[in-house]
Structure formats: structure tokens, C-alpha cells
Amino acid sequence: MAFDTCRHLRTSLLDLHRTLVTLERRDYEKRNGPLGAGDFLQVMAYSDDMRWLDPLSRLIVMLDEALDGKGDADLTPLPVAQRARELLALDRDSTLPFMVRYMAHFDSCPDLVEAHARALSALKAVGTTAPAA
């Protein structure tokens, strides 16, 4: 896979992650009041309520490592891209924490729909295929 294609995938997944973090912060602050950036970073790092984002966060880290040449020698971006496609499959029947929370945000946030579409476009450029239905 071309370096630029892999970097584009990483950027699109990072943008998707940022959109989700913004949504989570908005929801958290509605329930708990405003927080400074450092305080919210602590919530992101240590709150069990934010663990649902871990699968996406791990994929971004894996792409970072692959791009930097620091990852597992056997790691290629294609399996990471395939896992990203599975993660973003919009499975309304899933009970996985990521998908349940993702779908709740997806149905109410046009910014997430746009970020999702950009991520799928980047995945298409990588050449992964959609999982069998």
C-alpha cells in the first residue's frame, strides 16, 4: 500500500476520532458541567465511560506505528484497514460497546456522518472490501 494512502487513512480515522471525542465531551459536560481541556483529558484517559472508543484508538496507534516503522514487523496497514471497515460497518444489531455508542451518535450528528463517509472513502482507496453481509 502506498505511504500516502496509508497516511490518508490514518488522517481520516483520526478526524473521525476527534469528532467522537467532541461529541462525548459535549454529552459529558451536559451531565457534569464544563471542564477544562486537562480535566477532560483525564476523563478520556481514566473513565470507564470512554472505553468504548478504545477499538478506534488502537487502530490509529497501529497505523502510526506502521507509518513510523516502529510496529510489529508482520503488521501491514491492510489488516488494520480491514478491521477499521468492520468497526465502521454500522451494524444496528451489534451489542458491542463501540457500535452501540457509535450508532447513537451517528443517528444524531451530521458531522459524524461526514467524518464516517471520509473514513470509508479512505478505506476504499486502501482497497479493502466490505465484510460479507
Rank of each mutant, 00 (worst) to 15 (best):
D107P: 03
L63R: 04
A130H: 12
L16P: 02
D74G: 15
A37L: 11
A132D: 12
L123M: 01
H105W: 13
L16I: 05
D93Q: 15
H116N: 09
A84T: 03
R7S: 04
M62S: 15
E65M: 14
A119L: 04
A45V: 05
A125T: 03
L87Y: 05
L112E: 06
M103E: 07
Y102T: 04
R85H: 11
L87W: 07
L78S: 13
D15C: 09
L75K: 11
D39I: 01
P110R: 08
G38F: 09
R7P: 03
V126P: 06
S57I: 08
L16Y: 02
D68I: 04
D54K: 12
D48E: 13
D68M: 07
S47T: 05
D4P: 03
L96C: 12
L96G: 14
A37T: 13
V21A: 08
H17S: 14
F98N: 01
F106S: 02
D39Q: 13
L87G: 02
R25C: 00
A104C: 10
N32S: 08
R18F: 08
T128W: 05
A119P: 07
L16G: 02
A89K: 12
L78F: 14
L20F: 02
Y102R: 05
D111V: 11
T76H: 09
D111K: 11
G36C: 02
S57D: 08
F3W: 08
Y46N: 15
P79G: 06
E29Y: 06
M1H: 08
L13K: 02
R85G: 06
C6L: 07
D15L: 09
L123R: 06
L63W: 01
L63I: 01
T11Y: 08
R7Y: 06
D39G: 11
D72T: 12
P77G: 07
V126N: 04
V21G: 03
A45N: 10
K124D: 15
T128A: 09
I60T: 07
A89S: 14
L123W: 01
